[in-house]
Design a protein around this nucleic acid. Structure first.
Length: 856
RNA sequence: GGGCGCUUAGCUCAGCUGGUGAGAGCACCUGCCUUACAAGCAGGGGGUCGGGGGUUCGAGUCCCUCAGCGCCCACCA
C-alpha cells in the first residue's frame, strides 16, 4: 500500500485512461448471456459538427449509468458510434476542401487535394473545384476520420467507459449493409415504396426533405390583393389575397369554404389569371378559411402544403413553374395565348423566386390587377432545419417508408410501443405521442445527395431507352452493401450501364436518419454476428436529447417495430440541453458555444463530470463553472480524506474490530445511503444518487472523522482505535464505490493505493456489507454526538477562539433518550470537543453550556 | 390554436406517495494556521415556497383558476 504524501489530481486523466485501455477494463464480455448484459444504444455524435459542452453533459449521464451497471455485475455493452453520414459532412467537406460534387464527372484516382484547394473563396459557391462523386466521398471519409479522432480524444479525457473495440460509423460497411438490408426487407414486405408526388424541397441542397426535418421560421411577407376577372361577365372580378404573387402562373383554381355565402354563387364558374389570362375554376373546400385574407384563396402548384391537399382532393392539374434550383422554369406550364402573357413570362423565366415576386408585383400594379399596396406581415414559413431558404414544393419520385403517417392502425401500434417504453423522465412520452399522432404522411427517406447509403436498386432500360421503374433489380442480401452507381446488377455488365436494354442505378441515397434509425441493429451485429445480437438485442438503454425524439427515437422505434415486432430497448433516458451561463440556448450564430477541452484541462474531468451529473434527465442545465469548482474540491477532499484514513494504520483491523457505538451508527447510516443511491440509480436518477452520496461524505468528514480522530490515533487504547480504523476503511471503501460512476479518476486513484484491480470492476456497494456482519447498536448516537460537538464549536466560534480551545466544563441538558445516546459516545465527544468535565442534566430541549479555558 | 415542463433564500436547485418549527451548494458576513485537507475548517444572516380560490385536523407537497417563462407540435392563402 502506498499513500502519497501530497496527493494530487494532476495527470490522473492521462494516466488512468491509458491504463484502462491497456487493461481492457471496459471490454465487453461477450460470453455472458443476455440476462447478464446491459446494452446501451449510444448516440453517434455528428462528427462534422463542433464539439461543445452539451456532448460532455449527456454522455456523462450515460457513462454514470454504464459504470453503475458494470459495478452491479452486468457485462456492459457500451460501444461508440460516429455519425459521419449525410449532409453535415458534405457541407463541411465542401467548405474545408473547397470542392463540389458533380456526379457526371469521372473518378480521378490520383486526385490530391489540400484543405482550401478550391481557393480562398471556397464556401461562397463561386470557385469550387468540381470532383466526381467517388472522389467526393473519399474526401468525406478522409475528413471524418480526422474528426473522429478529435471526438475520441475528448471521450477518453472525459473518462467514458466505452469499449473502443466495438465502434462503428454510420457510413461504414456494416452500417451500409444493415441499412440496405433493412430497406430491402421493408420493400419486400411492402413497407417501403416509391411514389411520384409533391415533396418539400430545399433549393440550395437540391434534395427532398422529410417532415421530421422541418422547422417553422417567422419571415416577413406581404399580402397582395389581386383581382381575377370572372369569365363571362363584364368586368366583374374576384379578389384574393396572396403572399406568393410570383406563383400566379402556377395557379390552377380559386377556393373558398363551401359554407361561405359570399362565394357560393361563384362555385363552378371560372375566372382568369391576371397577366397570364389562363382560365381557372372557382371551387369549394372545407380547408379554405373564411377569416383569412379575403376568404378565397388561389391554389398554386405548389405554394404550400395546403395547396398540395387541395390539389390532391380537388383533382387539379399540375402547373409547375419553380424548378429544383429555386428558379422559374424557362417554359410556362401551359400554352400562353395572349402576347402580353409571353412578355410577362419572359421577364420572370430563369429568375429566383424572390426576383420573380418583385417583377410580378410590378406587372400587376401596372396592369391594375393589384389592388392597393401590399400589406406587410410576418408569418411562419417552412424551412429545412439545416437550410437557409424557404422550402419549395416540387413533384418528384421519392422513396417512402410506412411509419403510420397514412395508416391509423400502424400509428396506433407505434403509440403503443411508445407507451411500453420506460421514459426517463416519464413526461417525455407525451412528445413522442404528439408527434406520432400528428404525422401527415409516410417517411420520405430518399435524398438527392452523394455522401450516404445508396438505395441498393437498379432499373432496366427498355429497348426504347425508357426506364422501367416498376420492377427494380434487387441484389442478394449476401452481396450487400452494393453501390449501384459503380457496380452492375446481377446478370449485367458495367458496359450496359445507361444503354437501351441495359440498366441504370438508383441515383439517390438514403437520408441519414434512415441509417441511424438502425443503430441498435448496427451496434449489436444484426445478421452479421448472430451470437452478439442474441446477447445484446433488444437493448436496455437509449440515451438521447429531447429535441430528436421525433427523429431518432421515433424512427428507431419504427424500424424495430417493422423488422422485429418489438421495441429496440426497454428504457429511454432523455437528457436536457446545456444552456450558456445566462440560461440561453447555445448556438454557433450567437457565439456562446462553450467548448469542453479547455474546461477539462482547467478543472479536471471529474470536476466537469460532477457538474454534468447535476443535470437530471430531461432538465436543461446552465453551464456552471462554480459547480465545476465544487466538483474539483470534492475530488481533492476525497484524496485528503483517503490519505487520512489509510495513513492511520498499515493494515486493516477488519470488520470484526468494529464495536464502538458511534462507528456502528455511522456505518448503518451509510447503509441507508447505499440503499437510497442504489434505488435512485435503478430509476435513472443518477443525480439523486450523487447528492445522497455527497451529502453523506461531507457529514462523514466534518462530524464523524472529527469525532473519532483522537480515538483512531489511540487516545483510548488499541481496541477503540481499531474499531475506528476499521470503520473508517469500510466506510471509505463504500463511499469510493458510490462515487466511482461520477468521479472515475479520483476514485480509481485512491483505490489503487490500497486495493487490487480497478474500482470500476469492483462490486457496487450493498447494504448487506454493513448490515450483515455488524449489529445495529444504539441508533441515533451519531446525530447526538454531532449536535453536541456542534454546540461546543459554536461556543468557541462565538468567543472567537480556536477550535483547539479546552473546555473546562460543559453542561448538556437534554431529555432522557438524548442523554442515553450521549452516554454511549461520551468519550468520543469529549475527545473531539476537548472537554475536561462533561455533565449531563435531564431536561427538555437539548442545550450545551460550555466554559472555556482562559486564554493564554 | 394544441401539448408538455417550469415558477421555493441574491444565484443554481433538492424537497419522493400531504404531517416534527422550510433545506443544500454557491455568493455574502464573522472568526479559526485544528498534526487528512488554508484550493481548508467553524459559525452566522437571508425565503409570507408566482397570484387567487378550494379539499383537509394539517399543503411548496392534492384540486381549480389566473399570470409569467421555456420547449415541442400545428394546413403558413
Amino acid at each position: 500500500m502506498t499513500v502519497p504524501d501530497k496527493p494530487t489530481l494532476d495527470g490522473l486523466e492521462d494516466r488512468w485512461s491509458t491504463r484502462w485501455e491497456a487493461d481492457g477494463t471496459y471490454r465487453f464480455d461477450r460470453t455472458r448471456p443476455r440476462s447478464e448484459v446491459y446494452s446501451i444504444d449510444t448516440p453517434p455524435p455528428t462528427v462534422s459538427g463542433s464539439l461543445h459542452i452539451g456532448h460532455v453533459f449527456s454522455y456523462t449521464h450515460t457513462d454514470a449509468v454504464a459504470r453503475f451497471q458494470r459495478m452491479r455485475g452486468k457485462a456492459v455493452f457500451y460501444p461508440m458510434g460516429w455519425d459521419d453520414n449525410g449532409l453535415p459532412t458534405e457541407r463541411r467537406v465542401q467548405n474545408h476542401f473547397g470542392v463540389r460534387c458533380d456526379p457526371s464527372l469521372p473518378y480521378q484516382p490520383d486526385l490530391v487535394l489540400d484543405p482550401g484547394a478550391g481557393g480562398a473563396a471556397a464556401g461562397r459557391g463561386e470557385e469550387l473545384v468540381s470532383v466526381s462523386r467517388r472522389n467526393f466521398v473519399e474526401l468525406c471519409e478522409r475528413l471524418t476520420a480526422e474528426d473522429e479522432q478529435v471526438f475520441e480524444l475528448l471521450w477518453r479525457t472525459l473518462g467514458l467507459s466505452v469499449d473502443w473495440s466495438m465502434s462503428y460509423a454510420t457510413i461504414d460497411e456494416r452500417s451500409r449493409r444493415a441499412s440496405q438490408r433493412a430497406f430491402l426487407r421493408n420493400l419486400e414486405r411492402g413497407e417501403a415504396y416509391a411514389a411520384d408526388a409533391p415533396v418539400l424541397w430545399d433549393v440550395d441542397f437540391q434534395t427532398a426533405v422529410a417532415q421530421a426535418e422541418l422547422e417553422d421560421r417567422e419571415q416577413p411577407g406581404a399580402y397582395h390583393r389581386i383581382a381575377f376577372p370572372r369569365v363571362g361577365t363584364d368586368g366583374d372580378a374576384v379578389v384574393i389575397d396572396t403572399t406568393r404573387p410570383e406563383l400566379l402562373a402556377a395557379c390552377v383554381a380559386l377556393v373558398a369554404h363551401p359554407d361561405d355565402e359570399r362565394y357560393q354563387p361563384l362555385f363552378g364558374t371560372e375566372v382568369t389569371t391576371p397577366l397570364f389570362g389562363v382560365a381557372v375554376p372557382v371551387l369549394a373546400h372545407r380547408l379554405a378559411d373564411p377569416e383569412k385574407g379575403s376568404g378565397i384563396a388561389m391554389i398554386c402548384t405548389f405554394g404550400d402544403t395546403t395547396d398540395v391537399t387541395w390539389w390532391r382532393e380537388l383533382d387539379l392539374p399540375v402547373r409547375t413553374i419553380v424548378g429544383r434550383d429555386g428558379r422559374i422554369e424557362s417554359q410556362p406550364p401551359i400554352a400562353l395565348a395572349i402576347p402580353a402573357a409571353e412578355e410577362a413570362w419572359a421577364q420572370i423565366a430563369g429568375r429566383t423566386v424572390k426576383q420573380a415576386r418583385r417583377t410580378i408585383v410590378e406587372l400587376l400594379a401596372a396592369s391594375g390587377a393589384l389592388l392597393g399596396e401590399p400589406r406587410a406581415i410576418t408569418h411562419p414559413v417552412k424551412f429545412f432545419e439545416k437550410g437557409d431558404r424557404p422550402l419549395e414544393i416540387v413533384s418528384s419520385r421519392q422513396w417512402y417508408l410506412r411509419n403510420g403517417g397514412r395508416d391509423a392502425e400502424v400509428r396506433a401500434e407505434l403509440v403503443d410501443r411508445g407507451r411500453s417504453l420506460r421514459w426517463h423522465p416519464p413526461y417525455m412520452q407525451a412528445r413522442f405521442e404528439n408527434w406520432v399522432e400528428g404525422l401527415t404522411g409516410d417517411w420520405l427517406i430518399s435524398r438527392q445527395r452523394f455522401f450516404g447509403v445508396p438505395f441498393p436498386l437498379w432499373y432496366r432500360l427498355r429497348a426504347d431507352g425508357t426506364t422501367d421503374l416498376e420492377a427494380p433489380i434487387i441484389p442478394d442480401e449476401a452481396d450487400l452493401p452494393v453501390d449501384p452507381a459503380s457496380e452492375a446488377p446481377p446478370g449485367f455488365t458495367e458496359d450496359q450501364r445507361g444503354r437501351p436494354g441495359g440498366f441504370v442505378g438508383d441515383p439517390d441515397v438514403m437520408d441519414t436518419w434512415a441509417t441511424s434509425s438502425l443503430t441498435p441493429q448496427i451496434a449489436t451485429g444484426w445478421e452479421d454476428d448472430p451470437d452478439l445480437f442474441a446477447r445484446t438485442f433488444p437493448m436496455d438503454l437509449r440515451p438521447q436529447a429531447h429535441d430528436i425524439i421525433r427523429t431518432w427515437l421515433f424512427s428507431t422505434v419504427v424500424r424495430s417495430h417493422l423488422e422485429h415486432g418489438q421495441l429496440p430497448w426497454t428504457d429511454a433516458a432523455i437528457s436536457g440541453w446545456v444552456l450558456d451561463p445566462d440560461r440561453k440556448k447555445m448556438s454557433k450564430s450567437k457565439g456562446n458555444v462553450v467548448v469542453p477541452l479547455p474546461l477539462l484541462a482547467e478543472h479536471g474531468a471529474d470536476a466537469v463530470r460532477y457538474w454534468a451529473a447535476g443535470g437530471r434527465p430531461g432538465t436543461d442545465t446552465a453551464t456552471d463553472l462554480g459547480q465545476m469548482k465544487v466538483g474539483r474540491r470534492l475530488a481533492i477532499k476525497l484524496l485528503n480524506a483517503s490519505r487520512f484514513v489509510l495513513g492511520l494504520s498499515p493494515s486493516d483491523p477488519g470488520v470484526g474490530a468494529i464495536t464502538e457505538p458511534l462507528d456502528l451508527d455511522m456505518l448503518h447510516r451509510l447503509a441507508d445511503v447505499v440503499a437510497d443511491a442504489t434505488a435512485a440509480f435503478e430509476g435513472y436518477d443518477y443525480t439523486r444518487a450523487l447528492e445522497r452520496t455527497e451529502a453523506h461524505f461531507w457529514t462523514f468528514c466534518d462530524d464523524y472523522v472529527e469525532l473519532v480522530k483522537g480515538r483512531a490515533y489511540g487516545s483510548r487504547g488499541d481496541g477503540p482505535a481499531a474499531s475506528a480504523q476499521a470503520a473508517l476503511r469500510l466506510s471509505l471503501s463504500i463511499q469510493l464505490r458510490l462515487f466511482a460512476p461520477f468521479l472515475p479518476f479520483v476514485t480509481e486513484e485512491v483505490w489503487s493505493w490500497w486495493q487490487e484491480g480497478s474500482i470500476h470492476q469492483a462490486s457496487w456497494p450493498d447494504e448487506a456489507e454493513i448490515r450483515g456482519p455488524l449489529a445495529r447498536g444504539p441508533a441515533g448516537v451519531a446525530d447526538v454526538a454531532a449536535a453536541v460537538l456542534g454546540e461546543l464549536r459554536k461556543a468557541k466560534t462565538a468567543a472567537k477562539r480556536s477550535l483547539r480551545t479546552e473546555v473546562t466544563r460543559a453542561v448538556v441538558v437534554g431529555d432522557a433518550e438524548t442523554l442515553e445516546r450521549l452516554r454511549a459516545v461520551e468519550a468520543d465527544v469529549r475527545d473531539a470537543g476537548r472537554v475536561e468535565d462533561l455533565e449531563l442534566v435531564e431536561g427538555s430541549d437539548l442545550s450545551v453550556t460550555a466554559t472555556l479555558a482562559p486564554e493564554d
